[in-house]
Simulated scan of single mutants.
Amino acid sequence: MAERYSSFQDGTQRWLWQRITAAFLVVVLAFHFFLLHFVNHASEVTFGMSQARMSEWTYLSLMVLFLVTATFHGVNGVYNALVNQGLTGQKLAAVKWTLVVASVLLIVQGLRTAAAWSTLV
Score class of each variant (00 low, 15 high):
V101G: 09
R19H: 13
Q90E: 15
A30S: 11
Q109S: 15
F8T: 02
L92Q: 10
S50E: 13
L60C: 03
V39N: 00
V108M: 11
A102T: 04
F66Q: 03
F33V: 05
A42T: 10
A94Y: 11
L60W: 00
Q85V: 13
L99D: 01
G77Y: 03
V27T: 07
Y5W: 14
S118T: 02
W15Y: 15
A22F: 12
G77F: 05
N80F: 13
L29Q: 09
A81G: 13
A52V: 08
V68N: 01
L36N: 08
T12Q: 02
S61M: 05
F47R: 15
T88L: 07
L67R: 00
W117N: 11
E44R: 03
M49V: 06
V83S: 05
Q109D: 13
E3Q: 14
Q109V: 14
N80S: 08
V78M: 12
A2P: 14
E3V: 14
A93E: 15
T21P: 00
A116N: 10
F8W: 08
T12K: 05
Y59F: 10
R19V: 05
F38V: 01
G48N: 14
L25A: 05
Y5T: 12
L16S: 11
M49S: 10
I107N: 03
L35A: 09
G110R: 02
T119M: 06
L16R: 13
K91V: 04
